Amino acid sequence: MTGKTLVHPDGRTVTLLDSGTDDQGDYLLVQHTIVKQGPMNGPHWHPVLQETFTVQEGLMRFVINGEETIIEQGGQARILPTQIHQFCNVSTDRLVALHEIRPPGQHWNMFELVHKLECEGKLNNKGIPSNPLWLGAAWRVMDGYLAGPPRILQTAVLGGLARLADLLKYRV
Rank of each mutant, 00 (worst) to 15 (best):
N109E: 07
V7F: 12
L117T: 11
E118M: 10
E120D: 06
T82A: 10
K4D: 09
P47K: 01
E67G: 11
H44Q: 13
V114H: 02
E120W: 10
G58M: 11
Q24C: 07
L28I: 06
Q50R: 10
A138F: 03
D18V: 04
R140P: 10
L158H: 04
Q86Y: 05
I70K: 09
T155H: 01
D22M: 02
G160A: 04
G42Y: 12
D22F: 06
A138N: 06
V7R: 11
V114I: 13
G127N: 10
K36I: 08
T2Y: 15
Q73P: 12
P103E: 04
G58P: 03
N124E: 09
H44Y: 06
V48P: 00
T13P: 01
V172G: 13
M60V: 08
E72T: 12
L59Q: 14
G105H: 02
R61Y: 14
S91P: 05
S130N: 12
I79C: 07
W45E: 01
E120A: 15
H115R: 01
R78V: 13
E112F: 07
C119A: 10
I152H: 14
I84D: 06
H99E: 14
T52N: 13
I64C: 04
P129M: 02
M40G: 10
T15Q: 06
W108C: 08
G160S: 02
L29E: 00
Q24M: 11
L95A: 12
Q50V: 05
I128P: 00
C88Q: 14
T52V: 15
V157A: 03
G121H: 08
